[in-house]
Design a protein around this nucleic acid. Structure first.
Length: 465
RNA sequence: GGCGCGAUAGCAAAGCGGUUAUGCGUCGGAUUGCAAAUCCGUUGAGCCCGGUUCGACUCCGGGUCGCGCCUCCA
């Protein structure tokens, strides 16, 4: 039984799909004017794991994640660079896809872009104007009448009357009410623009998601997800737009990922304290980054720090260490695991609001049993290795060749070939009972970040720290 | 000022009204030429003050502290 924490009701709820066995999910994606940072990676990985798990449980998931490819920041950045905004967005969309691929994130089923949905956006604007929820201002902007929508604030518990108090809302004579937000922006000279009944312009930020989700998921859909900074105003405004325009409930379950912090502060572009995915992948294996993100619950804040990455690496080393002798074992089909207690524990944890942390705790139990079986019961060990890989597959981890992973550490000051050569020399020294020489070689390798592990059969395996 | 989240052992991080979370680390043992890895064991929690209860880390109330949103931000 699947339970999901719903931001709207602020509690965990039993998930009930609109259509039996199906889930329509729309997640707010990236505004493409810069490299993705770790905060983006968290949302991307979280919903990737969620999708993979749901599919593993035979839910028919339609996963939609949009790309915002027109907005003020994009225009400004393109101007700074002296290029067309489309060149800028194309480049950063490509970079985003590269980052996703490296982190093992599968593409969503549909990846709609705002600029491809201008007609739908215009249609929704017209509908909102016709129904009296929106108005065209004198400058070509179209605004949403926040006070017209009775449920405004229901997602984030805002009181419309109090929105003005203490809030930093700029007064603007163009608007009827300072709380109104823009649906369509009239174009200034030289700005990218599309024709509209209100003059040339471009969509406001919130309306694109209402239009694209309607088109891709329907007027009402199951799950809407996004980052920690989106509930207000973005998702609140989406609700106002969609429910007013479509005259029905917009979304059943709202899901929001937790923030990634640096030194206790939220990592964000506006604070400038962000690490791009690329920065981090220079130093850490992509799976280490993914493991770090998976090893805490998706709603908890996590701290981005070197120590936590090292810890993630240590955790993965344990998994891959256990799998090292089972390179050829493939993930067991889940249909063969219905009696497995490991699998049951895993599914129970994941069904409970996607509790990856608890799921991993069970996988560590499996690792221990696998390590024991390695010595005592080879057939059992092979079976357990297959189970472990099957669970890892759902989380998007543990599919690498273990030796390759373990030898791909951060310290590359010595080549694999050189390591192998020294190991061969050390094995000979050991055979000759030249232990001083053997230890000398091992010491030298240790200093280069290489850890040796002698086996009973006289071979030596190695890994980078 | 409004709304919301959190406070768990050396660190990280979960569930749970009474029964081992888990990982890393520590310490001891097995194993090893010595190590590493592995295994076995060990260590050690629940911000403060009240209340409910036979019993609370877990529920309720009140504090304190931290964080997020209220403006573009995943």
């Amino acid at each position: 039984m699947l339970q999901i924490y719903n931001t709207l009701t602020r509690q965990k709820e039993i998930f009930k799909p609109l259509k039996p066995g199906k889930i329509s999910m729309y997640v707010c994606g990236i505004t493409v004017y810069d490299y993705c940072h770790i905060g983006h990676a968290r949302v991307l990985v979280a919903f990737d794991v969620i999708t993979k798990f749901l599919r593993s449980q035979n839910w028919g998931v339609t996963y939609v994640r949009n790309i915002t490819d027109i907005d003020d920041k994009i225009i400004r950045r393109a101007n700074e660079n002296g290029e067309e905004y489309t060149e800028l967005t194309k480049r950063f969309i490509d970079y985003m896809h590269e980052d996703e691929t490296r982190l093992g994130i599968a593409r969503p089923d549909i990846e709609p872009r705002a600029t491809a949905y201008i007609n739908q956006i215009l249609d929704m604007n017209k509908a909102l104007i016709d129904k009296g929820y929106a108005y065209a201002a004198s400058n070509g902007d179209v605004y949403y009448r926040v006070t017209r929508f009775a449920d405004y604030g229901k997602l984030t518990n805002k009181n419309v009357d109090e929105l003005l108090v203490g809030a930093r809302i700029e007064v603007d004579e163009i608007k009827e009410d300072p709380r109104d937000f823009v649906l369509w922006k009239g174009a200034k000279a030289g700005e990218p623009a599309w024709k509209s009944p209100w003059g040339n312009g471009r969509p406001g930020w919130h309306i694109e998601c209402s239009a694209m989700s309607k088109h891709c998921c329907g007027d009402t859909f199951d799950i809407h997800g996004g980052g920690p900074d989106l509930p207000f105003p973005h998702h609140e405004n989406e609700i106002a737009q969609s429910e007013a325009a479509n005259s029905c409930k917009y979304v059943n379950y709202w899901m929001h990922a937790g923030a990634v912090r640096v030194d206790g502060e939220k990592m964000s572009k506006s604070l400038g304290n962000f690490f791009t995915i690329r920065d981090v992948l220079e130093k850490y294996h992509p799976e280490v980054v993914r493991f770090l993100l998976v090893s805490s619950h998706y709603r908890s804040p996590i701290n981005y720090a070197e120590d936590n990455l090292i810890e993630a690496r240590t955790g993965l080393d344990r998994f891959y260490g256990a799998l090292r002798d089972y390179v050829d074992v493939v993930p067991t089909p889940l249909s063969d695991l219905t009696e497995s207690n490991y699998y049951k524990a895993f599914v129970d944890a994941m069904n409970d609001d996607f509790n990856t942390r608890v799921a991993l705790a069970g996988m560590y139990d499996l690792v221990r049993d696998l390590n024991n079986a390695s010595k005592a019961d080879p057939a059992l060990a092979i079976r357990l290795a297959g189970e472990l890989k099957a669970l890892g597959l759902i989380l998007g981890i543990l599919q690498e060749n273990p030796a390759v992973f373990l030898q791909a550490g951060s310290s590359d000051q010595i080549s694999a070939g050189e390591v192998e050569r020294l190991i061969a020399e050390r094995i000979q020294a050991k055979k000759d009972k030249q232990y001083a020489r053997a230890d000398e070689i091992r010491k030298a390798l240790t200093d280069s970040g290489i850890v040796l592990e002698d086996s009973r059969d006289g071979t030596t395996q190695w890994r980078r720290e």
